[in-house]
Design a binder for these strands. Structure first.
Lengths: 255, 255
DNA sequence: GTGCTCTACTTGTCCTATCGAGTAGACAAG
DNA sequence: CTTGTCTACTCGATAGGACAAGTAGAGCAC
């Protein structure tokens, strides 16, 4: 019997509009027909066209604006965040500052540091005991007016307490590597665990993230040999940032 | 007058359920109340509870299943894809194979190679002329039964034509680095540009991606000094993979 | 010209309703 | 005990309607 299962109308309409976007019949900035027009064009009720357009918005292809209409989104992750691209040079400032300066932008950020104790998850990442004291710093990075990156860093106070770098910001030296260099802890490598997910509501608000745009969540940890000295949760909007990693391939060993 | 703008009912209901999930009142695998129950609980119509639950599904927090109910999703990116963690050893097989073997899984993949010409975008990445001949290979990688990664690689035929590695797969040597080693091109480094976005419909189907789960799109390019020799588009589901990068920090230069 | 209001158009929110389709458990038939 | 069927419950798709709220342009008052 195998009744041919017809695909839902809203899916077919979404497919049709998506094809127009990928084919270029509709390009970035163009206005889609209004809901009334789409209802007439496809001969369906309003809920169907709303579901179709919502599919496209969740795919990040269009942006609905109340009172104005629905518009094809621009696809443009303009900024780059570069890791492992130091060309053999040890950094003398923070990665954020370097990336901004490389693109001729002023870098600006807000921060708030606070003494606290490690949660279980943070303790595990720093290889310390849960409830050991840490310095937690919340950052908001800006490019011009808009916030582009959120970050929360954790440093074990066992390492920094009483040193000039106990406070991550406001001292003479900026950047994790130079700061730890200044107290004789020479960072050897950094790991980044990258994942993507939909933004939490407060992240969407803080970073002004459009519907349908996921965020990239980075867990970064600095090491001195095998000992973690700083770990950090970073959140960036995927429509504004591309993460770039440059990984050297070591030469073959001589046997 | 400043009429206090009450937030929409469906947003408030979504907030309430989200809070129950983050607080642990509802944990992974738990079933949410049915739409009928939620209608009664909150005193709203069905469309409102459906909109509320849809918000949560788009955030990746719950999964709706027709005929069964709505369930809190598990948050568990189990697999890791590790780059730059070679501990000084030049790889002798593909990264995919190494990651699978490190976790005790068999690695399996399908592929299809085809001679074609470079598109403008690919030509730019390989630093060749548009419409120069390239070998394109589509991959689907599996872990057990499920597909976990899609990949499309491009190699300039100007480099490989007539050599034993003209076909990326099926030869004696596997993995990009060993293959190019075998024809005397010693890869020096690899760059990866990472971005996140909602899956395209065919990607969602091929990788069996649940609603609300974004993908990570990686552009990987292998270089011999400054010359690109292979470039590749990789797509992985963000609920199954974490990308891990290990970046060495070079020692300070002696002045 | 400047500023205001009015209006038409757009999407947002929410309602009642109906039928379809997938699931799972109860239960009867074998 | 196994198998098939029936049924209650679940979410999916769609119709048609109402009013709210944001936008932009026309046109009027100054």
């Amino acid at each position: 019997m195998a009744t041919f299962q017809e695909r839902p109308a809203y899916v077919q309409i979404a497919d049709d509009i998506r094809r127009q976007i990928t084919d270029g019949a509709l390009s970035a900035g163009d206005k889609l027909p209004s809901e009334q027009e789409l209802m007439a064009d496809y001969g369906v009720s309003r809920i169907v066209v709303r579901m179709a357009v919502e599919v496209l918005q969740n795919e990040g292809l269009v942006l609905k604006q109340q009172g104005r209409g629905t518009f094809v989104r621009e696809q443009r992750p303009v900024r780059q965040r570069i890791m492992g691209d130091l060309y053999g040079k040890r950094p003398t400032s923070s990665p954020m500052k370097r990336a901004a300066e490389a693109q001729g932008r002023r870098s600006e950020w807000e921060y708030q540091s606070r003494r606290t104790t490690a949660t279980k998850a943070i303790a595990e990442r720093l290889n310390i005991a849960a409830s050991d004291p840490v310095m937690r710093t919340n950052y908001r990075f800006f490019a011009g007016e808009e916030a582009v990156m959120l970050s929360t860093s954790y440093e074990p106070l066992a390492l920094t307490e009483g040193t000039p770098i106990e406070q991550p910001e406001g001292g003479a030296v900026t950047g994790v590597v130079p700061r730890f260099d200044s107290i004789g802890l020479n960072i050897t490598h950094v790991t980044e665990d990258v994942n993507a997910r939909a933004p939490r509501p407060y992240e969407a608000e803080a970073l002004d993230i459009a519907p349908g745009v996921p965020i990239m969540a980075i867990i970064r940890t600095y090491f001195v040999a095998d000992r973690p000295v700083e770990t950090c949760d970073i959140v960036v909007a995927s429509d504004r940032y591309t993460l770039t990693y440059n990984v050297p391939i070591p030469p073959a060993e001589a046997d």
